[in-house]
Write a protein that binds this DNA or RNA. Structure first.
Length: 923
RNA sequence: GCUCGGAUGGUGGAAUGGUAGACACGAAGGACUUAAAAUCCUUUGGUCAUUGCGACUGUGUGGGUUCAAGUCCCACUCCGAGUACCA
């Protein structure tokens, strides 16, 4: 009987469905294990062969854990809100929901063919009102909370109001975006509107003016992680900086905990590093520089307080609130002109245009240590959003200050002995201080590190500043001027104050609109919705939430997906707790993986979840790139020349569909049929073949290098696809897809099949297994178990191949051996495993089998060979029984060497015996 | 610029400091076949020797530690990823 994968895979997929094999339920008698994939955004292009890589890896792990007796939660769903469906809706008028559902169905069809063990009963979609009810619910909780810096957690805003009533801001320990202070009396006498506005400065979800990335082409605001190099990640449109009044989440309040939490999770070092950089911890000092002719101080942030003697000017960000204050009448025009020009520049232009620019404000500040007056400049190289938006410039030891000083001809004072600053600044934090002493502070002769510490102490003692930690992490901008997203559970009253809806009105469903574009007056698309009002007739918020809203707590919802009373019940949350293994791409390192950690910590503070970190272990699967093929057309002709001969002609390289190329050899007939313009193509061949060139590129339609998993499943079967994707290379490494190696794993499955059948007869027997076969099996158990635990799936597949070849060579068809082999293979190739499992007479599903136990005893050999070497040169071999002690081996080696006269009466300096069969005698 | 990875045959890739190149692809030769496909067998890092069993060399480059280095240390070259006027 042939290995008929089509029939086998169809049959067992149906069996698993009928028997609800993958249905998971809470079971306190068994330990839990939660394996999660990053749920996909269902794009119109469908899955290509790269997408399932991570899903297969997590599926293998899930099945393995289940065979080991764990109650495994392995769900799947869809991140269904997003820009592409909406862009498509704008172009075609088709409702994004229709597009999304179509795409989801397509995804599901493709996923089902691969044989995953998802519990589809728990499927979630972020655009489902039953789901986004809980996204809105969490937002309400955030609106009603503030961050208490003393307790280092979120607390109810009502507690803060109480505190204000009694004590004002004194001792309030809050995380805020203003430094405003007031007394209880001031608070109690304040108007309702002032109180409303003041509280916005403390809420975790708040309305605030913030510098946003505005993308005019998409007509919406984007988060920092949705922008790269000044263009939008989706679409690649230019992005500009703009101040807007937006909903924000106070993620920055959690910066410290997000950083600390990284120490408790099992993620790769590189991913932790990426998050650490994004959070951007930096310890320094805030210092006050008095303004000349004013009572006010200029507050700056620096990590190099030790360079205070080298400060020759100050710089403010154009957007800084100090800017207007320090601009003198004479300089007013110049400053305004400069600010206008900076605003015009998009962020991309700012990056490309690295020219030094700036303007003198007209004012001076006083260096608090030297007492010297120094000029204040305004320049866009200082960022408003970081630190205080103002810096003390030390041109000798900061490259940006150096460039600025050179341009404006400002003095540069070196502070490190023997540093060369004739062409560039000396930025390194090393060397001996000089030019840095006066009657109040002496730093000369100190190492830079000592000087930093001494200056910090000095600053605090003299009250000219304080030691401060700054984070680069900003609050998340949470409004999108878009249709296809979660509506905010927010209404505005007559005084234009924002309020949260009562929870009983949740979910607040997304309304219908006639068009998915902004209104004529420039309002977001929800402005088109008729009667977009709450029960009392108040107008509702017009913005929707961003893409990351729905994905920030989805892993919690899978624990209890049908609960309409709670996000997740206490019982379910305490059983499933958090994700034990999370598999997904690194592209979410600074987006989703920060936001969901923040979201989870917030819910943890509120007592809704019992674990502070959502994802215990995280594996990043590498990207699968495409392998593009090229043909070479001789210029101005329709003649194509084979790769090896192309250098003799003047050619143009053209992408060719990889599906009509086999092994880099072009099917010329298919090529002619591929596109009309190639119908009469002619070819210059080498060895009667047309050889194509190739390159590794991103897998995409435009490169004609997309390989569809459905085609692979049709041709080779799901099991072959699964094995091959894992065999391709280490899971975490990016690698190009190349279908040509797939025959290897397909042959392996056929050989495996051949162990059970001879012609049409099942040849499995119940003889006592040979020692040799047992050894082969136990070698495999050991290897595969270790490999799965370490996600080294490619090498375990090699181990399977070796084992099957060995069993084949010894003509072993022993039931006991094969049964174990099948269970080991079941996580990797579940369909064929299930089939063979039933062929040898088992009744239950192989999914419910038990993972084989490894027994070292079977691996023991009868004797071991040791190569005896002298000074590292191998001389001869001795053979000893297994288990012979090191000392015994040494003795035998010495005795033999003396007999062979290698030792020649010399006393060996050293004898090294290592278990891997080498004895080295150093004479 | 900074941070983190990586570099091994024609290709994808194996190697707790201990016989480098497992396993697979590709290629070459052979068996079966009228023929092809499929299947099976042999060879396959390089150079030299192939009527011998072999010899030498070899993991990006240059040093070092070690009886022993692809693996550890130092310097460099190249490639990839993240981040970027973050003071």
């Amino acid at each position: 009987m042939e290995y008929n994968f089509k029939e086998i895979e169809k049959r067992w997929q149906q069996y698993w469905k009928d028997n609800k094999t993958y249905k998971t339920e809470l079971d306190n008698s068994r330990p839990k294990f939660y394996v999660l994939d990053m749920f996909p955004y269902p794009s119109g292009a469908g899955l290509h062969v790269g997408h399932p890589l991570g899903y297969i890896a997590s599926d293998i792990y899930s099945r393995y854990k289940r065979l080991q007796g764990f109650n495994v939660l392995h769900p799947m769903g869809y991140d269904a809100y997003g820009l592409p469906a909406e862009q498509y809706a704008i172009q075609t008028g088709q409702h994004p929901e229709i597009t999304t559902v179509t795409n989801i169905n397509r995804y599901r069809e493709q996923l089902d063919k691969i044989g995953f063990c998802y519990d589809w009963n728990r499927e979630i979609r972020t655009c489902d009102p039953k789901y986004y009810k809980w996204t809105q619910w969490a937002f309400i909780k955030m609106f009603n909370s503030y961050f208490n810096t003393k307790l280092n957690k979120a607390c109810p805003i009502s507690e803060l109001i109480e505190h204000f009533e009694k004590y004002g801001t004194q001792g309030s320990n809050v995380s805020t975006n203003t430094g405003h202070e007031f007394t209880a009396e001031q608070w109690n006498n304040a108007s309702d509107d002032d109180k409303y506005k003041a509280l916005m400065n403390y809420r975790i979800a708040y309305l605030g003016d913030s510098m946003v990335n505005w993308c005019p082409k998409l007509g919406t605001v984007l988060a920092n992680d949705e922008v790269s190099e000044g263009v939008s990640l989706r679409g690649g449109y230019p992005v500009e900086q703009k101040v807007m009044f937006q909903w924000c989440l106070r993620v920055s309040a959690y910066a410290n905990r997000l950083l600390k939490g990284l120490e408790t999770v099992d993620w790769t070092e590189s991913l932790k590093e990426t998050q650490k950089n994004w959070i951007g911890y930096s310890e320094g000092a805030e210092m006050k520089f008095p303004l000349v002719g004013s009572d006010e101080d200029l507050l700056i942030f620096t990590t190099r307080a030790d360079t205070i003697f080298g400060v020759t000017f100050m710089v403010l960000a154009p957007e800084s609130c100090y800017t207007a204050k320090v601009t003198t009448e004479e300089q007013k025009n110049a400053v305004e002109e400069y600010i206008k020009n900076t605003k015009k520049k998009t962020e991309r232009e700012r990056i490309i245009d690295k020219k030094v620019s700036g303007v003198f404000s007209g004012s001076y500040a006083v260096n608090p240590v030297t007492g010297k007056q120094i000029p204040i400049y305004i320049s866009d190289y200082v960022l408003a959003g970081y630190g205080t938006g103002a810096i003390m410039a030390v041109p000798a030891h900061d490259s940006r200050d150096y460039a600025f000083a050179r341009y404006f001809n400002l003095p540069i004072i070196p502070l490190i002995e023997n540093c060369d600053i004739s062409n560039e600044s000396f930025d390194a934090k090393e060397g001996i201080m000089t030019n840095s002493s006066n009657e109040i502070l002496q730093l000369n002769g100190l190492e830079v590190k000592e000087a930093i510490a001494k200056t910090k102490l000095f600053i605090e003692e003299k009250c000219i500043g304080k030691v401060k930690v700054n984070y680069r992490l900003r609050d998340a901008i949470f409004s999108r001027q878009r249709y296809w997203g979660e509506p905010f559970p927010i209404y505005y009253d007559d005084k234009n104050q924002a309020h949260v809806l009562d929870e009983k009105y949740l979910p607040l469903e997304l309304p219908e609109v006639d068009k998915f574009l902004p209104t004529e007056s420039g309002e977001p698309p929800l402005g088109r919705a008729e009667n977009w009002k709450d029960a009392e007739g108040h107008r509702l918020e017009l913005c929707t939430m961003p893409g990351f809203a729905g994905s920030s707590a989805y892993y919690l919802r899978y624990m209890d997906p049908h609960n309409d009373k709670e996000l997740v019940s206490k019982e379910n949350n305490e059983y499933w707790r958090n994700v034990d293994l999370y598999v997904g791409g690194t592209e979410h390192a600074t987006g989703h993986l920060i936001y969901s950690r923040f979201w989870n910590k917030f819910l943890f503070d509120c007592g809704y979840v019992c674990e502070e970190e959502p994802f215990k272990k995280l594996i990043n699967q590498g990207m699968i790139q495409g392998r593009s093929n090229f043909v070479y057309r001789i210029k101005d002709t329709n003649t194509f020349v084979s790769l090896g001969l192309k250098d003799k002609y003047d050619t143009t390289q053209i992408h060719v569909d990889v599906n009509i190329v086999d092994n880099d050899i072009l099917d010329t007939d298919k090529f002619k049929a591929w596109r009309p313009e190639f119908n009469d193509a002619e070819f210059i061949l080498e060895n009667d073949k047309y050889i194509c060139g190739w390159a590794v590129e991103k897998m995409s339609k435009s490169m004609f290098n997309v390989v569809n998993p459905d085609d692979i499943v049709d041709k080779y079967g799901a099991d072959t696809l699964r094995l091959y994707e894992m065999f391709l290379g280490p899971l975490e490494q990016s690698k190009p897809w190349d279908t040509k190696g797939i025959d290897g794993v397909n042959r392996f499955l056929k050989r495996l099949w051949g162990l059970f059948y001879k012609n049409d007869d099942i040849i499995v027997n119940d003889d006592k297994p040979s020692a040799e076969a047992l050894k082969s099996l136990h070698k495999l158990i050991k290897k595969v178990t270790w490999d799965i635990e370490h996600f080294s799936y490619n090498t375990s597949i090699s181990a399977f191949m070796i084992c099957v070849n060995e069993l084949n060579a010894m003509k072993c068809a022993n039931r006991q051996i094969l049964k174990n082999l099948i269970v080991l293979l079941a996580p990797f190739a579940p369909h064929i495993a299930e089939e063979l499992w039933h062929i040898i007479g088992e009744n239950i599903s192989v999914c419910d089998a038990e993972w084989p136990k490894f027994d070292e005893q079977y691996l023991k050999e009868n004797n071991v060979n040791y190569t005896v070497s002298f000074n590292g040169k191998p001389r001869y071999t001795i053979e000893v029984a297994t288990g012979t002690s090191k000392e015994e081996v040494e003795k035998i080696a010495l005795a033999n060497s003396a007999a062979e006269k290698w030792l020649d009466n010399k006393i060996p300096k050293k004898i090294i015996v290592v278990p891997n069969k080498i004895v080295n005698i150093v004479i």
